[in-house]
Amino acid sequence: MTILYKNQSIATDKQGYLLDFTEWNEDIAVLLANGDNVELSEPHWEVIRFVREFYLTYNTSPAIRALTKAMKAEFGEEKASSRYLYRLFKEGPAKQATKYAGLPKPARCI
């Protein structure tokens, strides 16, 4: 599968995750989110950028528990609760934020 960005097609897997994370930019994040009828707000961006940074540092997409723990250190208790994150990303924060951040789907995914 592919998505179209500036007349170039970018390869994704069946569920819409980019096959090559280096092809990502923030415009593409918007495209990926639009595909799911999600409009990205600033709180979404915080999580997306954080997940991307996590991946670049640790070479792995964080599962939900690791994501909340890591976010707590960065943003504090409030923004790191799984309730807060689920409100932003209804299909599962780790899964969905990872997708918009252009990363592979977390293998240990919930």
């Binding site: 996590f54 540092t57 640790y58 070479n59 792995t60 964080p62 599962a63 528990r65 690791a66 994501l67 723990k69 890591a70």
Partner: peptide, 15 residues
């Protein structure tokens, strides 16, 4: 090779 060793530094987030 994809450097999976970097992932070791994330172990703390998994307790």
């Amino acid at each position: 090779i994809k450097d999976y060793l970097k992932t070791f530094s994330a172990l703390g987030f998994y307790d």
